[in-house]
Design a protein around this nucleic acid. Structure first.
Lengths: 362, 362
DNA sequence: CTGTTAGCGCCTTCAT
DNA sequence: ATGAAGGCGCTAACAG
């Protein structure tokens, strides 16, 4: 049906083996021969059959990237960064291709642990060269175990596994744990809370993400550490509301927080998107930001600086992390010490936070 | 090295063919036999070798999705929608899998026509079941021709090609043109301009995208049609600045427009992201929105409603379009009449537009 | 309903 | 430097 290696070989008057060698460039071939082969390839418009070569060589040029939701810039940015490291170079690619280009298979798990496992199996079936898991992990012992098993199998099957933006796997019994690129969510949340505290706030509400996620837990822990240090442990407990990582949760959560504590002067949102919802709710309540209530986000997605008002948040180096993960996935960079690279998040103080209004008025 | 079909067959005491039939479920197999096979699969932790079956069956479960930049929500949303149609169902997937799950290979072209061609070849090499090209096309006759050739080859090789968010291919000589899902960019831009005109604006500046893109051209054309109808054709010409589809271009472009026409009362941006840049520039100039200058975006990305102030823009049904493209790619939906489905964009009037300030003051 | 027999298209020793 | 030959793991006719 379509053109094969054999056709090219015939046209060039050489053996299939020679054509293969020319195409893969991993073996000496006479200049003249190579030229004839290349010409035949052109003339026949030959395109290698990926599956066939993957089967024969037992290698693949596919890299899986698991994300919660590719429509969310948080994941889009990381996925894009991974991709930029494994795909064709950004600069006008010259002739030589030092590293064979890999293609990224992006899998939307939608935060479902079930689908995460399904995709992992699907990727193993493709014999993916590597798999990058981004985003926070679901904390559920049975899922954690199932996940660890799948990852072990993937590695056993020859795929490199890299975690990006999620904590390292709990130390299992055996084998090398997957390389990990992670964020210091705890520290970021702590610094954010300390910033608010130092501004004079004492009534702070926290809008956490879904309860069983590592990211959620770490950020919440960071917040509580700072609150406890200020002697506000009880309030931290009372003024925490869980929701999803979306705008609607921010809106609803802010109202709930206000209900619990009308005297609130600051709200820390689980992330920037949630913070946007908080701002909307506050505005709808006729409250000004940061006049009446200060608001903070997390992640520093591109839109954070253009929000109303510009969001005080923690900047996570998503691009660097994704790129790093991509390089680790291809084995193009040495593993960090301990197999874990941690990126810290920088506090970005902008217009959505200010000292609480003094009760006196001015 | 790893477990194969033969191993499973041996363990279950049947032939490899039977195992294959059980796994693919496309052929009658006795209940008892099927059960033994499935058990063997479990015990051996067998996972099909994708490349091998792709080779033997001459089919693949990979679908390519070309995007300019997956970190941009505009593309992220479409890619996610495509993916949701070809991958595992969002609902808790039951046991039976009516349609075999496909995996999405996301390719970032970065707007480079060269990389677009490279990826198309790479996808042909994977024998992708389908390829979805999103985003505006580069308008360059040599590239258009090269692209048409690549697409023809892909289709000849059995891949279904679907264009999503870009105009249908110019009618070539032969063969069926790729199915297309497109947006009415012209109409959207026209309505946006008419909205501003009806508000009383007469000095409008237009910040266009990169010059050689179909999306850019169509939006610009829609704008000019409306301007011409209002007898402002010359101004439309004079007050158009081209830039990239990013925030920085919006910032710089707004300043340039102000330089050309200090009396400007409205700026139409190529898209929402550009509009954010425009707003930032205006604020930095001490101008209020919409008091001094009205601003409009395009696309209605999620952040548009939370911008400062909420952006008047045109809503593009990105999710519907992507989903439709995904279904067309799998042949799960009949082709629209003429092979082209056009989605119109709805005008979303929000707070960033208002009548121009009357010269008198109030 | 199940086993047998050929390949699918390519890579890779082993010779030459 | 090049050719010949076997096999990668699976599917798809054919028989039975």
């Amino acid at each position: 049906m379509s053109v094969t290696l054999a056709d090219v070989a015939a046209r060039a008057g050489v053996s299939a083996a020679t054509v293969s060698r020319v195409l893969n460039g991993n073996y000496p071939v006479a200049g003249a021969t190579r030229h004839r082969v290349l010409r035949a390839v052109e003339e026949l418009e030959y395109v290698v059959n990926g599956p066939a070569s993957a089967l024969a060589a037992a290698t693949s040029d596919l890299v899986g990237v698991l994300v919660n939701d590719i429509a969310d810039p948080f994941f889009g940015i990381m996925a894009g960064a991974v991709q930029s490291e494994i795909g064709p170079p950004a600069q006008t690619g010259g002739g030589a291709r030092p590293v064979p280009l890999k293609l990224a298979i992006v899998c939307n798990t939608g935060g479902s642990s079930e689908r995460e496992l399904t995709y992992l199996t699907l990727l193993q079936r493709q014999r993916a060269a590597a798999v990058v898991l981004t985003g926070g992990a679901v904390e559920d012992s049975s899922h954690t175990a199932a996940l660890a098993t799948r990852l072990r199998r993937l590695e056993a099957a020859g795929s490199r596994v890299v975690l990006c933006g999620r904590p390292p796997l709990a130390a299992g019994e055996e084998g090398p744990h997957p390389l990990t690129v992670t964020f210091d969510n705890r520290g970021g949340a702590r610094r954010l809370t300390e910033h608010l505290l130092s501004l004079g706030h004492r009534r702070l509400g926290y809008l956490a993400g879904p309860a069983n996620r590592t990211t959620t837990r770490h950020r919440l822990e960071g917040h509580r550490v700072a609150m406890a240090a200020a002697g506000l442990a009880d309030d931290a407990e009372r003024l925490t509301v869980h929701g999803a990582y979306d705008r609607a949760s921010g809106y609803d959560g802010a109202l709930e927080l206000l209900r619990r504590e009308p005297g609130l002067t600051a709200i820390l949102a689980a992330n920037d998107t949630v913070a946007l919802g908080v701002c909307a709710a506050l505005r709808d309540q006729g409250l000004s930001i940061p006049g009446d209530v200060s608001v903070t986000g997390f992640d520093d997605l591109p839109f954070a600086v253009d929000a109303m008002p510009a969001l005080t948040t923690v900047r996570l180096p998503l691009t660097e992390a994704g790129a790093r993960a991509g390089r680790l996935a291809l084995g193009r960079e040495d593993a960090p010490p301990g197999g874990v690279a941690t990126f810290r998040g920088d506090l970005m103080v902008r217009d959505s936070t200010a000292p609480p209004r003094t009760s006196g008025g001015a």
